[in-house]
């Protein structure tokens, strides 16, 4: 479904992504793990169209999306990004956030209402808080809102950027359970994450990103058992 081929990305004149190639097949959960500064957000922002690659191409369902398409058109193709730090609109209510997420389907009022209802089913806490300002929700609730908002257009591919970032440990588990649910029932998921262990639990396949290049790849189970993971985060034991 998604093919990333030898993509190089520069940020502020520095080449941050140095030629990565990977793919995501329909129905899969693929995770890219890596420690800080590895370039995870850069990769996912490039797929979403917020950044343009220096070279290389990204194909979605065989259409090249890395060339000229602005981010908003990529969303229309069916790729939704739940960005780093959640980025919910703090001065909008929970309901308004969801409506914005469904902007592309706003003309079909019946569909919009159905979708919102679906989101409330999946994330009951949002139904309770629907009139609350999103900025006053807890971190975990904001993450749920961000995911629900991304799901409003029923995307073919859901991108998640470090859903665990800044979340207290109890919320992290809940959020990942939610993501696993989504995977079981709905969409294809590509997720970048620092918390390797918990991400690998819900993934089918994994890639390890280290300073802009992919250093390991394989099934999630294999990667999880590999001792080199700890090394890539904490260094070789002296």
């Amino acid at each position: 479904m998604l093919r990333v081929e030898d993509v190089h990305v520069a940020y502020d004149k520095v080449e941050v992504i140095k030629g990565v190639t990977f793919n995501v097949n329909q129905g899969e959960v693929v995770v890219i793990i890596g420690s800080n500064g590895a370039g995870k957000t850069t990769v996912i922002n490039t797929i979403a169209g917020l950044l343009r690659p220096l070279s290389g191409s990204i194909y979605f369902n065989d259409e090249c999306i890395s060339d000229k398409l602005p981010a908003e058109k990529i969303v229309a193709r069916g790729i939704a990004l739940c960005p780093e730090g959640r980025q919910i609109f703090p001065q909008h209510t929970v309901y308004e956030n969801l409506v914005l997420g469904g902007y592309l389907i706003r003309k079909d009022k019946a569909l919009l209402t159905r979708r919102i209802e679906q989101m409330y089913e999946m994330f009951p806490i949002l139904r309770t808080r629907y009139k609350q300002m999103a900025g006053t929700l807890s971190g975990g609730e904001q993450q749920m809102l961000a995911i629900a908002r991304a799901m409003m257009i029923d995307p073919k591919l859901l991108l998640l950027d470090e859903p665990s970032a800044g979340l207290a440990p109890i919320y992290v588990q809940a959020v990942f359970d939610m993501i696993a649910d989504l995977a079981r029932n709905y969409t294809t998921i590509l997720l970048v994450e620092q918390m390797a262990n918990i991400a690998l639990d819900i993934a089918d396949r994994a890639y390890v990103l280290e300073t802009g290049s992919i250093s390991m790849e394989g099934s999630a189970a294999d990667i999880k058992k590999d001792p080199r993971i700890i090394e890539s985060y904490l260094g070789k034991k002296g």
Partner: peptide, 23 residues
């Protein structure tokens, strides 16, 4: 909804674009 989109753009152009809205 338009007003909501305007307020969203006022908060963050990039996040608004992620909703499929052209800032």
């Amino acid at each position: 909804v338009l007003g909501s989109a305007i307020r969203a753009t006022a908060h963050s152009h990039n996040t608004t674009r992620l909703m499929g809205i052209s800032a």
